Simulated scan of single mutants.
Amino acid sequence: MSYTLTGADGRPYTSARKGTWGGHRGGRIYGRLDCPAALRAIARGGYVKNRVFFANEGTAVAAGYRPCGACCRELYQAWKGARDRGEPWSP
Rank of each mutant, 00 (worst) to 15 (best):
M1T: 07
M1E: 11
S2P: 04
Y3H: 15
Y3E: 04
Y3D: 02
L5V: 01
L5N: 03
T6Y: 09
G7F: 03
A8T: 05
A8N: 01
P12T: 12
P12W: 03
Y13I: 09
T14V: 14
S15E: 12
S15P: 10
S15L: 08
R17K: 15
R17W: 12
K18V: 06
K18L: 13
G19H: 06
G19M: 08
T20L: 14
T20M: 11
W21V: 09
G22P: 01
G22Q: 12
H24V: 12
R25I: 05
G26W: 05
G27H: 15
I29P: 14
I29M: 14
Y30V: 04
R32F: 10
L33K: 15
L33E: 15
L39R: 13
A41P: 02
A41W: 09
A41H: 04
A41N: 06
I42Q: 13
I42H: 12
A43L: 03
A43N: 09
A43E: 13
V48G: 05
K49H: 04
N50P: 01
R51K: 08
R51Y: 02
V52N: 05
V52Q: 08
V52Y: 10
F53P: 00
F53N: 11
F54G: 02
A55P: 02
N56P: 00
E57V: 07
E57P: 03
G58F: 10
G58A: 14
V61P: 06
A63H: 09
A63K: 06
G64T: 06
G64R: 08
Y65H: 09
R66G: 09
R66W: 02
P67S: 04
C68V: 03
C68A: 09
G69R: 06
G69A: 08
C71P: 00
C72N: 13
C72R: 15
Y76Q: 04
A78N: 09
W79N: 01
K80S: 10
G81Q: 15
A82V: 01
A82D: 08
A82L: 05
A82N: 04
R83I: 00
G86W: 08
P88T: 14
P88K: 15
W89L: 07
S90Y: 14
P91I: 04
P91F: 09
P91R: 07
